[in-house]
């Protein structure tokens, strides 16, 4: 695999990149995000875990405004999240997103999936975009599949293409919304390895996942959510060996002792 730079090296290596302040959101009567305060520093890898329905996917989706919020503020790299239109599109281009169900464009080849955003949003010329796309596909280990359609690939391959598609935009931060939850067990590792490599390269990452192994090995910080609130934040070591809240102890006792 070749080395491709994915993080913007000219940016300062410190400072807060994503800041959420007292964010609230309702789905009808359900108060799905309750006074969320969360700060993610540049280069930090934050893993969000918690039971189903705790609001962690919603939290992830509010950061590029795929979900709107009712109150509070979200800033990315010092700029508040625009409400809509061109400014929002511009901001989304700087925030990479990887979905649970891959969402590769079904009518385009793998290569076209990875070049589309570069050409249409970043206005790169086609040749340059293809070169970068091929390098990224090589980096995530699916270079041989470049001319196939998404439906011809395994789930693990599709998700790695989806990561390459997001990286092609040279994002400041990557959001992962349960990236391995729709995968067969044997394909989970190939995706996690790509993500671990990305974390080692210094990419700022917010990862919603049920993969505790990944949280232990790659995260700088674990955020534990339950019932729409952030219940606990700690380093992986602290969190897994010595959780402070009862809710986290209960959660861990249910998932770790099989």
């Amino acid at each position: 695999m070749t080395e491709v730079s994915v993080a913007k090296e000219d940016e300062a290596a410190t400072g807060d990149l994503v800041v959420l302040k007292s964010v609230n959101k309702h789905f009808g009567a359900l108060h799905v995000l309750q006074d969320i305060d969360l700060t993610i520093a540049r280069g930090e890898v934050v893993v969000v875990i918690g039971p189903s329905g705790s609001g962690k996917s919603t939290l992830c989706r509010t950061i590029n405004r795929l979900e709107t919020i009712d109150s509070g503020s979200i800033t990315i790299d010092g700029k508040p999240l625009p409400a809509e239109g061109k400014a929002l599109a511009k901001l989304r281009a700087d925030v990479g997103m990887v979905f649970q169900s891959f969402n590769l464009f079904a009518h385009k080849t793998v290569l076209e999936n990875v070049t589309l955003g570069q050409v249409k949003v970043r206005k790169k010329d086609k040749k340059e975009a293809e070169e970068r796309a091929r390098a990224l596909l090589d980096r995530v280990g699916v270079a041989a599949q470049a001319d196939k359609y998404p439906a011809q690939l395994s789930g693990g391959q599709q998700q790695r293409v989806a990561i390459a598609r997001a990286l092609a935009m040279e994002p400041k931060v990557m959001l992962f919304d349960e990236p391995t939850s729709a995968l067969d067990p044997e394909m989970i590792n190939e995706v996690l390895e790509v993500m671990q490599q990305l974390a080692r390269d210094g990419m700022t990452m917010i990862v919603v996942t049920h993969e505790m192994g990944f949280a232990r090995s790659a995260a700088n910080r674990v955020v534990f959510m339950a019932d729409g609130r952030i219940v606990e934040q700690a380093t992986p070591d602290q969190f897994f060996s010595n959780p402070r809240s009862d809710r986290a102890k209960d959660f861990l006792s249910k998932i770790l002792h099989h």
Partner: peptide, 20 residues
């Protein structure tokens, strides 16, 4: 999810509709 992925890349409404 197709439209969401397209929006997440930073495509405009017209581009999401016309390209994806």
């Amino acid at each position: 999810g197709q439209a969401e992925a397209a929006r997440a890349l930073g495509l405009s409404f017209n581009q999401v509709l016309g390209l994806v």
